[in-house]
Design a protein around this nucleic acid. Structure first.
Length: 902
RNA sequence: GGGCGCAUAGCUCAGCUGGUUCAGAGCAUCUGCCUUACAAGCAGAGGGUCGGAGGUUCGAAUCCUUCUGCGCCCA
C-alpha cells in the first residue's frame, strides 16, 4: 500500500484519460436508432481564452451530456467558436498596428481579411484546447465556426430570404455610433455607467421679444442641431409659450415651442431642447411632431458645416463643449451650470463615448419574428430553468424594436446587397439583394431594363452582419440545416438543452428561438438552463478588465479539473450568481486560490484514500465469525439501499436541472455514508482479512458510486474505476451505463438510522467524559418492545458494538448505577461509566429535557384537540401528529422515571 | 419613470406543491483526537423570532397586503 501516494494527483491522470477518451471516439456522434441528446455549445469568441464563466457553463454542459451518454442516449455536444466581429476586428487592427505598422485604412478589404484569417489561425481555437482540460466531452469532429464557408453561406441565404419576405429593410434610424471605431454598436456593446457631468441652463429668447425659456442640457455643443423646445402639456409655467418661437443662442435660428408628454416637469427647468439628430428620445419626439433633422456631427465626432456657427466648425465634440462655454457666457445666455450625475454610454471596445447617430442601416422587423418566439416560452414549449426568467423574456419581447444587423466592419459576413455605382453612397434607390453578385446583376438588369449592365456597374454593400445575426442560426447551421434540411438535422434538431448565461437572453437566446421558428418551424431547444454570473467577493462580475478573475488554467493546475468542477457546481444553483471565493493578495491582485475548489480537491483525496483502504485489504473466503458476517451483511444491505435512495434523488434533480443539489447529495453519500459509516462498519481489524463476499460487494458499491458521480467529476472516477478492478479494454467508466434505479427499502434505512443515532449518542458521551475512542464501553438498553424490535434486525447489535466500540450490550429491566443515560427514539440507553455520576448535573439535564418534551407534547395535543385540524388536514398528517404525541409521551415517562430514581 | 428579483446561522446559500426529511448544508467557531485510508483527516458540540408589521388558513420560512433595506433589467 505504501507505493500508492496518500494524495490524488490529478495532473498525472487527467491528460492521460482525456487522450484515451478522445482517441477511443467516445465523444463522437452519428445518427443511429438511439434517442439523440443534443447540446450546441454557446460558441466562445474565436480568439478568446477560457474564463470563469466558460468553466461554469461548460462544466454544466459536460455533466448533462455525460449523463445522457451514460443513460444510453446518442449524446452529441457540438463545439465551435464565434467570429465575434467587432471584438476580433479590434484585436486584428491592434495586431496590424503593432506587428506590421499598418493601419486599417492603409490596406484593402481583401488584404485585411487575409490578415484576419491569419490571426484567427494563429490564436483562434486556443479556447477549444482549454475546454479539453476541463474534460469537456465535445464531438470535436463537429467543431463549427461562424465564418466557415458553409456557415457564411447560411447567413447570406438567411439575409436574402428575410429580404424577400419583407422582414428585412434598409432604413435611416437612430443607432449607437462609436466615433472612434467608426461603426454602429449593438446595445450590448455599450456600457453605461454613472459619470459626473454638467447641466447647462441656457436662455432661449422668444422671437421678437425679451422673454423666453430656460432649457437644461448636458450637451450645449448640440444646440445648433436643435429644431424645437419641448415642454410638458400639463406644465402651466410654459403653457403660454407653446406655439410661439424661440431663438437658438449664438445663431438666432428660430425654432418652435412644442408640447409633448415625454418632458419631465421636474427635471432641469422643465423645458427640453429637441435635437433629433443627436438624441434618440429627441428623435422620436421629432418624428411625432414632423420636425426636421439637422446632423451637425461628422462620423468621427467633429462639428460640421451644418451647425452654421463658424467658430466651432471642425472642432471635436468635447472640444466644442469647452469652447462654447465662454461664448455662451459672453452672449449672456448661460444662466447657470449645475453638476450632476448621469449615465454615460461608452463603447465596450474603444471606451469612447457613444454618439447617438442617425444612420442608414439594415434592420430586421421584429414583430412577426417575435410572436411565435414569445408564445413558445409562455406556453412552456420551451422551458426555462429557473422558470422566472420567463418574466425577463416577456418583458423584452413585449417591447421589441427592430434589430439593426449591419456593422461597419470588415470581419464578418458581408451584406449581400448590391447597388448601382451610378448612385451616390447612402442615397441608393435601387437595391439588389441576392446570393451572389451574378444573381444581383441579373436582378439589376431586370429592374433597370438595361441588359448592358455588368458586374462593374454594381457595388456591394460595405457592411457586415452583426455577430448575433450569424450566431442566431447556430443550432440550425451547425447541422447544415439550410443546405440539407432533410439531413442529420432531422435527427439532432430540436436540441435538448441550451446552457448559457442570462445576460445574453435577448441577444442570443431570444433570437435563436425566433430563427428556430422562422427557419425550422420548430423550437431550437426544449429547455434553456440559465447559469448565473461568476462574481468576486465584492459581487462584481468577474472580467478581464477589472482584473478580478482568477486564471482559470492556474486553477485547473492547482485543484485539478475535477476539483474545479466540484467547486463551481457545489454552489451554483441554476440562475443564481456564483460568488467565487478567489481572494485578493496584499497588492490587490487576484490569487489563483479558492476554498470552493479546495473542497473539490479534498473530495478527490477522500475517494482516493477510500481506494487505498479497500485495495489494501486481504480477502478470505468466509468471515471469521457469524457476528462479523451478520454485521457486514447488514452494512452491505444498508449501503445498497442508501445508494438507491440517493440515486432516486439525483435522478429527480437531473430532471429539474438541480445539478448542485445532485452533486451535494452524491458528495454526502460518498463522504458520509460510504466513507465515514459504511467503510468503518466493514473495516476489518488491523492486518485482518475481509470475507470475499463483503469485499466483492464493496467493490461493486464503490463502482456504482463512481458511475453515479462520473458526469460531475469525470477524471477521478475514471481513474478509480480502473484502479478498483482490472477492466477489459473498452470498459471505461465514461462508456458505462448510469446505475439503474430500484426503489429503496426505506424501512431498512430508517432502522439503520436509528442504530446510527444511538452510536452517535454513545460517542457524544465518550467525548463529554474524556473516554478514549478505543476504550470499550458497556451499554445497557432499557428493555422495551420497540428496543427489542430494533435489535431483531440481523446484524444491528454487531454493528453497534463495532461502531460504538462496546464490550457489552445488554437489555436491562432496571437502571444500572454509575451510568449516563440518553434517549434515542422512545428508548433509553445507559452507558456504564467507571466513576461517580454528578447527580445534580444529571438531574438538571433530565429536567431540561423533560420540560422541552412536555411543552412539545402540549403543543401537539393542542393541535390534535382542534376539531378543524383533525377533520381538515390529510389523514397522513394527523397520523403523524398522533405518533409524535405518543413518542413524546413515551419519552416523558422515561424521563420522569429516571428523575424519580436519581 | 416602467418592470423583475432578493432578504433564512458570523459568511455563502439550499429549502420544490403550505403540513416531521422544517428550520437545513458547506465554510467559520468551540471541544477532543497525529485512531491502523485520508490532519487536505477523524469523533462530537454550540449557533437562527426565516428583514419588520398585518392578513388568509386547522396549520405559514413557504400564499396575500404593506413597510424597510438591497440588487438587476429596460427607459
Amino acid at each position: 500500500m505504501s507505493e500508492i501516494s496518500t494524495r490524488y494527483n490529478p495532473a498525472e491522470t487527467e491528460e492521460k484519460w482525456y487522450r484515451h477518451w478522445e482517441s477511443s471516439g467516445y465523444f463522437k456522434s452519428v445518427p443511429d436508432d438511439r434517442e439523440p441528446f443534443t447540446i450546441v455549445i454557446p460558441p466562445p469568441n474565436v480568439t478568446g481564452v477560457l474564463h470563469m464563466g466558460h468553466l461554469l457553463n461548460n462544466t454544466i454542459q459536460d455533466i448533462l451530456i455525460r449523463k445522457a451518454r451514460m443513460d444510453g442516449k446518442n449524446a452529441c455536444w457540438v463545439p465551435g467558436t464565434d467570429h465575434a466581429s467587432i471584438a476580433t476586428e479590434a484585436k486584428v487592427v491592434r495586431w496590424l498596428r503593432e506587428e506590421f505598422k499598418l493601419r486599417k485604412a492603409d490596406i484593402s478589404r481583401e488584404e485585411f481579411m487575409q490578415y484576419a484569417y491569419q490571426w484567427k489561425d494563429k490564436y483562434g481555437g486556443i479556447i477549444l484546447q482549454q475546454l479539453r482540460r476541463l474534460g469537456a466531452s465535445c464531438d470535436w469532429d463537429r467543431t463549427a465556426f461562424t465564418m466557415d464557408p458553409q456557415y457564411y453561406q447560411d447567413c447570406v441565404r438567411m439575409f436574402v430570404d428575410l429580404y424577400e419576405k419583407g422582414k428585412l429593410y434598409r432604413g435611416l434610424r437612430m443607432v449607437n455610433w462609436d466615433p472612434e471605431a467608426l461603426t454602429v454598436l449593438s446595445n450590448e456593446e455599450v456600457i453605461y455607467s454613472e459619470e459626473n457631468a454638467q447641466l447647462f441652463h441656457l436662455h432661449y429668447r422668444l422671437e421678437g421679444g425679451e422673454e423666453g425659456v430656460v432649457i437644461a442640457t448636458q450637451r450645449p455643443e448640440t444646440i445648433f442641431a436643435d429644431v424645437a423646445v419641448a415642454v410638458n402639456p400639463k406644465d402651466e409655467r410654459f403653457a403660454h409659450l407653446v406655439g410661439k418661437k424661440v431663438l437658438i443662442p449664438l445663431i438666432n435660428r428660430a425654432i418652435p415651442v412644442i408640447a409633448d408628454d415625454y418632458v419631465d416637469i421636474e427635471f432641469g427647468t422643465g423645458a427640453l431642447k429637441i435635437t433629433p439628430a443627436h438624441d434618440p428620445n429627441d428623435y422620436e419626439i421629432g418624428q411625432r411632431h414632423q420636425l426636421p433633422v439637422i446632423d451637425i456631427l461628422t462620423d468621427n465626432g467633429y462639428l460640421n458645416e451644418a451647425c452654421g456657427f463658424e467658430p466651432l466648425i471642425g472642432k471635436e465634440r468635447f472640444e466644442a463643449r469647452k469652447a462654447i462655454k465662454p461664448l455662451l457666457e459672453a452672449a449672456g445666455v448661460l444662466v447657470k451650470i449645475q453638476d450632476y450625475q448621469t449615465k454615460i454610454g461608452r463603447s465596450e471596445r474603444t471606451n469612447c463615448v457613444v454618439e447617438p447617430k442617425l444612420s442608414l442601416q439594415w434592420f430586421v422587423k421584429m414583430t412577426d419574428l417575435g410572436a411565435p418566439a414569445l408564445r413558445a416560452v409562455m406556453e412552456g414549449e420551451i422551458k426555462f430553468f429557473p422558470a422566472n426568467f420567463q418574466n425577463l423574456y416577456r418583458n423584452w419581447m413585449d417591447n421589441l424594436r427592430d434589430w439593426c444587423i449591419s456593422r461597419q466592419l470588415w470581419w464578418g459576413q458581408r451584406i449581400p446587397a448590391w447597388y448601382l455605382k451610378a448612385e451616390a453612397n447612402n442615397k441608393e434607390t435601387a437595391i439588389f439583394v441576392a446570393q451572389s453578385a451574378e444573381e444581383a446583376l441579373e436582378k439589376a438588369k431586370k429592374a433597370t431594363g438595361n441588359p448592358q449592365l455588368t458586374l462593374e456597374d454594381l457595388r456591394q454593400d460595405e457592411d457586415v452582419l452583426d455577430t448575433w445575426a450569424s450566431s442566431w442560426l447556430w443550432p440550425i447551421s451547425v447541422f447544415n440545416g439550410f443546405a440539407e434540411p432533410e439531413g442529420e438535422i432531422n435527427y439532432y434538431y430540436p436540441t435538448n438543452v441550451l446552457v448559457t448565461g442570462w445576460d445574453i437572453i435577448f441577444f442570443w437566446v431570444a433570437r435563436m428561438i425566433m430563427a428556430g421558428y422562422e427557419y425550422k418551424g420548430e423550437r431550437p431547444f426544449q429547455s434553456v438552463y440559465f447559469t448565473g454570473m461568476v462574481r468576486d467577493k465584492n459581487r462584481r462580475k468577474m472580467s478581464k478588465s477589472l482584473g478580478n478573475s482568477p486564471d482559470s488554467l492556474a486553477l485547473l493546475d492547482t485543484y485539478g479539473a475535477d476539483g474545479v468542477r466540484f467547486g463551481l457546481m457545489s454552489s451554483a444553483a441554476a440562475g443564481g450568481d456564483l460568488i467565487f471565493d478567489a481572494p485578493f493578495g496584499a497588492d490587490g491582485t487576484i490569487l489563483n486560490e479558492s476554498a470552493l475548489c479546495e473542497l473539490g480537491r479534498n473530495f478527490c483525496n477522500k475517494m482516493w484514500n477510500a481506494l487505498r483502504l479497500v485495495k489494501g485489504w486481504k480477502t478470505i473466503e468466509k468471515a471469521e465469525s457469524e457476528e462479523i458476517l451478520r454485521k457486514n451483511e447488514l452494512a452491505v444491505r444498508w449501503m445498497t439501499e442508501k445508494f438507491q435512495q440517493t440515486l432516486a434523488q439525483v435522478e429527480a434533480d437531473f430532471q429539474s436541472y438541480r445539478l448542485s443539489e445532485a452533486l451535494k447529495s452524491l458528495h454526502a453519500l460518498i463522504w458520509d455514508d460510504f466513507c465515514s459509516w459504511y467503510l468503518e462498519m466493514i473495516k476489518p481489524g488491523f492486518e485482518q482479512p475481509i470475507d470475499r463476499g463483503t469485499y466483492t460487494a464493496t467493490l461493486h458499491l464503490y463502482g456504482n458510486l463512481l458511475r453515479a458521480l462520473h458526469p460531475f467529476m469525470p477524471f477521478i472516477t475514471e481513474e478509480l474505476w480502473h484502479q478498483l478492478e482490472n477492466r477489459p479494454a473498452g470498459e471505461d467508466i465514461c462508456a458505462q451505463s448510469y446505475p439503474a434505479q430500484i426503489p429503496a427499502d426505506q424501512a431498512l434505512i430508517q432502522q439503520v438510522e436509528s442504530i446510527k443515532e444511538v452510536i452517535t449518542k454513545i460517542r457524544e458521551i465518550r467525548n463529554q467524559n474524556q473516554i478514549k475512542p478505543k476504550d470499550p464501553l458497556e451499554v445497557c438498553i432499557q428493555s422495551s418492545s420497540s428496543a427489542r424490535q430494533l435489535f431483531e434486525l440481523t446484524g444491528a447489535r454487531e454493528m453497534m458494538e463495532k461502531m460504538a466500540v462496546l464490550s457489552s450490550l445488554e437489555f436491562v429491566e432496571t437502571e444500572p448505577s454509575n451510568a449516563k443515560s440518553f434517549i434515542s427514539g422512545t428508548d433509553q440507553y445507559y452507558v456504564i461509566l467507571n466513576k461517580q455520576i454528578d447527580v445534580e448535573a444529571e438531574r438538571a439535564k433530565l429536567t431540561e429535557e423533560l420540560t422541552y418534551q412536555q411543552g412539545f407534547a402540549a403543543s401537539v395535543e393542542k393541535k390534535l384537540s382542534n376539531e378543524k385540524f383533525v377533520s381538515g388536514a390529510p389523514a397522513q398528517v394527523v397520523e403523524n401528529e398522533r405518533k409524535k404525541l405518543a413518542d413524546a409521551n413515551a419519552r416523558i415517562a422515561i424521563l420522569e422515571e429516571s428523575l424519580r430514581k436519581l
